[in-house]
């Protein structure tokens, strides 16, 4: 198919418009993953360690939120950020920041739920040792997060995969504005609607290559780290 070749060629030859799209996709999704990690990892760790009434219900809800439909998240963030909505004065709708917010909402439950599982498993293993060493609550959380860091990379990758692949949320809150909020996935949706299926497929292949590359990078880092720290 000539289309695939042309999309790949555009990337390889450094077509500025396409590179800007790729760059924005990465910036938005990586920023969302970083923010979601800052929220989701402490939340997941706290949920793993703190016993309180209703904890099981929170876990069930959190696990269910991993499957939040992007379009619903997009709509909710849209309504919040719209000028007529509660956060309208921020003026963020149809900006990359709105896309980051939407993807953060989408990804944070994934990272929190996977963190909760990972930390809880590790806590079962470490509990007696840490208690025997008289480690306080803050030290416990820090130790468990640090020692689970390689598993948590997997949680971050799951979040990144979700963010990079979704179109439903960012097309609503970003508006797919040429040169401003157009990402790989919204561009694919657009080219499909224009009937340029070969170009859409080509863009899709570029997206897949990027996602694989990010995963390979993280996997390599994880392996290297594990060799050093077990």
């Amino acid at each position: 198919m000539p289309g695939d070749v042309s999309a790949l060629q555009l990337v390889l030859t450094g077509d500025p418009a396409l590179l800007a799209i790729v760059r924005l996709s990465l910036i938005v999704s990586l920023s969302a993953v970083v923010l979601a990690a800052l929220i989701g990892i402490p939340f997941g760790a706290a949920l793993a360690l703190i016993q309180f009434p209703g904890r099981q219900a929170v876990i069930v809800v959190l696990n269910a939120l991993m499957g939040l439909p992007p379009v619903v998240v997009g709509l909710a963030v849209f309504l919040a950020l719209s000028r007529a909505g509660p956060l309208g004065s921020w003026g963020l709708l149809f900006t990359p920041k709105a896309m980051v917010i939407a993807q953060t909402v989408l990804v944070a439950p994934i990272i929190a739920a996977l963190t909760r599982q990972t930390i809880e498993d590790l806590w079962l293993e470490y509990r007696d040792e840490l208690n025997a060493m008289n480690v306080g609550p803050v030290g416990r959380v820090a130790t468990l997060i640090w020692d689970a860091r390689f598993s948590l990379v997997t949680a971050l990758l799951a979040g990144f995969g979700r963010a990079a692949a979704e179109v439903g949320a960012i097309i609503i809150v970003g508006g797919n504005i040429d040169g401003f909020t157009r990402t790989m996935t919204t561009a694919i949706a657009l080219e499909t609607s224009k009937g340029d299926l070969p170009l859409a497929v080509g863009l899709g292949m570029v997206l897949i290559v990027i996602v694989i590359a990010v995963n390979a990078l993280a996997w390599t880092a994880r392996r290297a780290g594990e060799r050093m720290a077990g």
Partner: peptide
Amino acid sequence: PPTRRAIVLQRPAMLRRSASGNIRY
């Protein structure tokens, strides 16, 4: 609090660190 007591459990958990890292901890 167990500041002056220590225990070696039947199946000790190894922290995911080096040997010296475990002691440093």
